[in-house]
């Protein structure tokens, strides 16, 4: 493609944006609204993922050790567990520490005194699974190990949690995909309106011998310019809203950790910009094809 032709494309796109300013603003606004809504959905998806990850990573197995286990045997048991790739971490909790935790939970009440100086609790190991979803299998394996008495990991609760998080994940993906499709449809409709108003121009271009590529290029440039400006506008509002929430709402909902890593948010912004550009280009492509068939 010749440099002069490229210059012509850019000049045409610029002139057309200026001369069709009302429709250009309408298209950019539509893209902006679509990206804004899509951004909210993506942020919800990412944050729900973070909350789910946090909830799932809190799941742990407590393996109560038998009374007569020596320190050496306990240490050996921990080493065996740590070598298991399904185990993320193992923490030893002595019976005294367990009692102290219990007392802490119950307030000022002196449990040891009430039990006449004898601690009925066992030493235990708190085990976290590499994959929290395989906690059941790991618990069964731990239970069979020599020196381990009872194993507890809140089976019912964990199963309900995983079932809920599974559906939340699916629902978030469905919402994002649905909103993405709605955005493409909405942008395609708006660009069709823009292109429809210029169908005479396209028809004349075809009749004087313009190739489809020649006709498409300025429209694509316009689509890109409008989608980038629309997306940036949406990202500014999205960013302001999100950081306001982090500062003002997050402290009140400390148990729901929000994503604050700026790198992750920048990547999301770039992703949305690309999505916005794709929206503009796909919308233009869908709308333009109909008028090129002359």
């Amino acid at each position: 493609m010749r440099w002069q032709t490229i210059k012509y494309f850019f000049r045409e796109a610029k002139t057309s944006l200026r001369r069709n300013s009302v429709l250009s603003i309408a298209t950019a606004t539509t893209i902006s609204i679509c990206v804004f809504i899509l951004g909210i959905a993506v942020l919800l998806y990412m944050n729900s993922g973070q909350v789910i990850q946090k909830l799932e990573s809190d799941v742990e197995i407590v393996a109560f050790l038998e009374d007569d286990l020596t320190t050496y045997q306990t240490e050996e048991l921990q080493q065996t567990l740590k070598k298991n790739p399904a185990v993320l971490s193992v923490t030893f909790v002595s019976k005294d520490e367990a009692l102290a935790r219990l007392e802490n939970k119950m307030g000022e009440y002196d449990l040891l005194e009430s039990m006449e100086g004898s601690n009925p609790l066992n030493d235990s190991l708190e085990i976290k699974a590499t994959n929290p979803r395989e906690v059941g299998e790991l618990a069964a394996a731990v239970e069979k190990m020599k020196g381990v008495g009872k194993v507890r990991y809140g089976q019912d609760l964990v199963q309900k949690l995983f079932s809920a998080t599974h559906w939340v994940r699916i629902l978030s993906v469905v919402i994002v995909v649905f909103l993405g499709m709605a955005a493409v449809f909405l942008v395609a409709t708006t660009t069709r309106l823009t292109i429809f108003s210029r169908r005479k121009e396209i028809y004349i271009m075809k009749l004087v011998g313009a190739t489809n590529r020649f006709i498409r290029f300025p429209f694509f440039l316009e689509g890109m310019a409008l989608s980038v400006s629309g997306t940036l506008f949406a990202l500014v509002f999205l960013g302001l809203g999100y950081f306001y929430m982090i500062e003002n709402v997050q402290p009140a909902l400390a148990f729901l950790p929000m994503i604050t890593d700026i790198n992750v948010l920048i990547k999301m912004g770039l992703g949305l910009t690309l999505a916005g550009m794709a929206l503009g280009v796909i919308g233009t492509f869908i709308s333009l094809n109909k008028f090129l068939d002359v």
Partner: peptide
């Protein structure tokens, strides 16, 4: 000029 631009004529 438009008719010439679409066929790739020089300025």
């Amino acid at each position: 000029a438009f008719a010439m631009q679409v066929v790739g004529a020089t300025s």
